[in-house]
Amino acid sequence: MGLFDQCRELFKTACLYEVLGITKKATDAEIRRSYYKVSLQVHPDRAPEDPGATEKFQVLGKLYAVLSDKEQRRLYDEQGAVDEGDDLLTHERCWEEYWRLLFPKITVQDIQDFERTYKGSEEEREDVMQLYKQHQGQMVGILASALCCSQEDESRFADIIHAAIQAGEAPSHPAFTQEDDRRKQARKQKADEERKEAEEMQREMGLRAEGDSLVMMLQQRQKLREQSFLSDLEAKYSKKGAKK
Rank of each mutant, 00 (worst) to 15 (best):
G2V: 06
D5H: 04
D5C: 06
Q6I: 02
C15Y: 08
V19D: 00
T23D: 08
T27Q: 03
A29Q: 12
E30C: 02
K37M: 15
D45W: 04
R46T: 01
D50Y: 01
P51R: 04
G52M: 07
E55M: 15
K56G: 07
F57N: 03
Q58L: 10
K62Q: 09
Y64S: 00
E71H: 13
R74I: 09
L75A: 07
D77M: 09
E78Q: 11
Q79L: 05
A81M: 15
E84T: 00
E92P: 07
W95L: 08
W99N: 09
P104C: 01
P104A: 04
T107V: 02
D110I: 04
D110N: 10
I111E: 10
Q112F: 06
Q112Y: 10
R116Q: 06
Y118I: 10
G120P: 02
G120K: 06
E123H: 05
E126H: 14
D127T: 05
Y132W: 00
Q134N: 10
Q138M: 11
G141L: 04
L143I: 11
R156I: 04
R156H: 07
I160Y: 03
H162N: 15
A163V: 11
Q166T: 09
S172A: 15
P174G: 03
A175N: 14
T177R: 13
E179R: 09
D181K: 06
Q189D: 12
K190D: 05
A191W: 05
E193R: 11
E193C: 09
R195C: 01
E199N: 06
E199H: 03
M205H: 12
G206L: 06
E210S: 09
E210V: 03
G211M: 01
S213T: 14
M216A: 14
M216R: 08
M217R: 07
Q219R: 13
R221K: 12
R221E: 15
R225M: 07
K236N: 10
K236W: 15
Y237W: 09
K240R: 14
A242T: 11
K243D: 12
K244V: 15
